[in-house]
Simulated assay, not measured.
Amino acid sequence: MKNITPCLWFDQEAEEAVNFYLSIFKNSWIEQTTRLGEDGNGSEGKVMTITFYLDGQKFMALNGGPHFQINEAISFVANCETQEEIDELWEKLSEGGQKVECGWLKDPYGVSWQVVPTVLGEMMSDTDPEKTQRVMQAIHQMKKIEINKLEEAFAQG
């Protein structure tokens, strides 16, 4: 097996969604677009699939019709090094979508994202359960994660 590519099923918004993501993530591009041929119902030329990369990660978008809806059971984790990266990504991805909680948001196409600092993984793997508990309590009080508040919670005690 060479790799695994997540496929996002859209009703008819695949091209619009891909362009939205490409406008947000650096190191992103479209690899291939397939369009429908003549089928007698006026769909000729419409996008069927787009293979694209976001920050080097391969994805596929499919215009599959209204049969299935994207939901929170699947989310993408965007790891950020700085608060500035979190702030920028949080605002751009959630514009027209929904800011949820604990670093989670939904973009305008219903895709769920977790915008988190890379330092969170280090904090949560600490051997002191009191520290990790304080960090979790701090996260549950946030929508967008704020690194300074996590660091304060981690350092208490």
Rank of each mutant, 00 (worst) to 15 (best):
M1V: 13
K2Q: 13
T5H: 00
T5A: 01
T5W: 06
L8R: 05
W9M: 12
W9V: 07
F10R: 10
F10K: 07
D11G: 00
E13M: 10
E13K: 14
A14Y: 09
E15Y: 03
E15W: 03
E16S: 14
A17D: 05
A17T: 10
V18G: 05
Y21R: 00
L22V: 14
S23H: 03
F25G: 08
F25A: 08
N27W: 03
N27S: 12
W29N: 11
E31M: 02
Q32C: 00
Q32D: 04
T34F: 09
R35H: 12
E38C: 00
E38K: 13
D39T: 15
G40W: 07
G40R: 02
N41D: 08
S43E: 12
E44V: 13
G45P: 10
K46S: 15
K46T: 15
M48H: 13
M48N: 14
T49F: 01
T49W: 03
T49G: 01
T49I: 02
I50H: 07
T51N: 09
T51E: 05
T51S: 02
F52K: 02
Y53C: 09
L54M: 14
D55N: 15
G56S: 07
G56I: 04
Q57K: 11
Q57L: 13
K58D: 02
F59Q: 03
A61V: 09
A61P: 05
A61F: 11
A61T: 05
L62H: 07
N63C: 08
G65L: 05
G65E: 10
P66L: 04
P66Y: 07
F68G: 02
F68M: 15
Q69R: 13
Q69A: 13
I70L: 15
E72M: 02
I74E: 01
I74K: 01
S75G: 06
S75P: 03
A78L: 11
A78E: 04
N79H: 04
N79P: 00
C80R: 13
C80I: 02
T82D: 02
Q83A: 00
E85W: 06
W90N: 09
E91W: 01
E91G: 11
G97P: 06
K99F: 08
K99P: 02
E101K: 13
G103L: 03
L105W: 12
K106W: 11
K106T: 10
Y109E: 07
G110Y: 03
G110F: 07
S112H: 06
W113L: 04
W113M: 06
Q114F: 01
Q114P: 07
V115F: 05
V115R: 08
V115Q: 04
V116L: 08
V116F: 05
P117G: 06
T118W: 00
V119L: 14
V119G: 01
V119F: 00
L120N: 04
E122L: 09
E122R: 03
E122V: 01
M124D: 11
M124E: 15
S125L: 06
S125A: 11
D126Q: 01
E130H: 07
E130K: 11
K131P: 09
T132P: 01
Q133Y: 02
R134V: 06
R134C: 09
V135W: 12
V135M: 12
A138P: 08
I139C: 09
I139M: 15
I139T: 00
H140K: 11
Q141W: 00
M142W: 06
M142T: 01
K143H: 12
I145R: 06
N148D: 15
E152R: 04
A153D: 06
Q156R: 11
G157Q: 10
G157Y: 02
